[in-house]
Design a protein around this nucleic acid. Structure first.
Lengths: 193, 193
DNA sequence: TCTACTATGCAACAAAATGTTCTATAGGAG
DNA sequence: CTCCTATAGAACATTTTGTTGCATAGTAGA
């Protein structure tokens, strides 16, 4: 029993538009009315799909916040793995809808359990990737297990997010190089061989 | 020529309520109507003060985002100064309206130049405080000038913000101790005496 | 192709939120 | 006491939001 293609088409068209509005104008402007105007889909149809404004907005959030799965690179050396992984992460912040949408999700999360779930799940995923890189480095003996890995992971991810979402500063290659250098130097100097 | 006390009283009462609504229910619910209902101030009066929803919300943002000026402590040692300063910062995030409002400002900033200005000014202020601490440590000769101060400042501030706003993890004394320890160890090991 | 099903568009509508304007009143300044 | 002005309140227009009924057209299955 397949789903009616009209349902799928409507959902996709509507959420595409909702996503764009969310990015360009903010969550305040994501409404059945604005999506209808942007897509040509009639308001009544939109109401049939998403009974209220809240569910429409949630759907728009969810659609964007699904983490792209990052092909792991953990063959070392640490600096190279880390640089590559954070490069992907930085690229996502710079060039994908996620970078533009994340601020809205952050705000929504402060008084919406649903949005909070979206973002914590997303972050859990990111952290796991970074952790894998450090774990591999420990496995290779490149650093020892007594480096404060949890703190390093947090700093590794926090810096680009903070810089982008809160400071609105550029995330470029030079900055990332410095960031990775610092992380590695911490890892190395705390490594007790 | 003093200002009519009624103007002041109305503004204060209204923005108090707007602030509370902003924190409890999110920016979506800050409207002339909701503030009127919360305060008893008539809608027409509110419209006279803030002609549209946008200006009302901006006013609410601005009111909360004014940085409390932090009495500087730069008499050393570095660890102690840093611990104290970040403690104040962490306290603000945990226990003042700013901590609850910041996510909303972050979101607003992504498509509102006004809000972006609010937050970048705020951050500039924070960074200056942290920088003063490092500068003093350099002045005392506790660390040398070749430590990557700018990166350290960013990490120092980024971590608590990221943890609170994005991860929704606890900011407690234990965490802060670890954080300051790590920052100091970076500063020390990069210090070339 | 014929039939049953259902998603859509559209119009009409109700309800609520959003702005606007006017007037009477009451508080504040000199 | 008098002038000035901020407020409350009501009346109003406008827009947004949500609902419903119906005709149309796309879809699936026989």
């Amino acid at each position: 029993m397949k789903e009616d293609p009209r349902l799928i088409a409507t959902r996709q068209t509507a959420l595409d538009a909702a996503q764009k509005i969310l990015m360009d104008e903010g969550v305040l402007h994501v409404t059945h009315g604005s999506v209808s105007k942007a897509t040509g889909i009639s308001r009544s149809t939109l109401y049939r799909h998403w009974p209220d404004a809240r569910s429409l907005r949630d759907a728009a959030f969810r659609r964007i916040a699904t983490p792209p799965n990052i092909p792991p690179k953990t063959d070392g050396p640490l600096r190279s793995d880390l640089r590559w992984l954070l490069g992907v992460l930085m690229g996502a912040l710079n060039d994908t809808p996620w970078g533009q949408i994340a601020p809205q999700v952050v705000a929504a999360a402060s008084n919406d359990a649903e949005a909070r779930l979206v973002i914590t799940e997303f972050m859990k995923d990111r952290f796991a990737s970074v952790e894998a890189v450090f774990a591999a480095a420990i496995g290779r003996g490149e650093i020892t297990a007594d480096v404060p890995v949890d703190q390093l992971i947090e700093l590794a991810v926090a810096a680009p997010y903070f810089r982008k979402l809160i400071r609105h500063e550029a995330l470029d290659e030079d900055w990332l190089d410095q960031h990775v250098d610092l992380l590695c130097s911490i890892a190395k100097t705390n490594s007790g061989h």
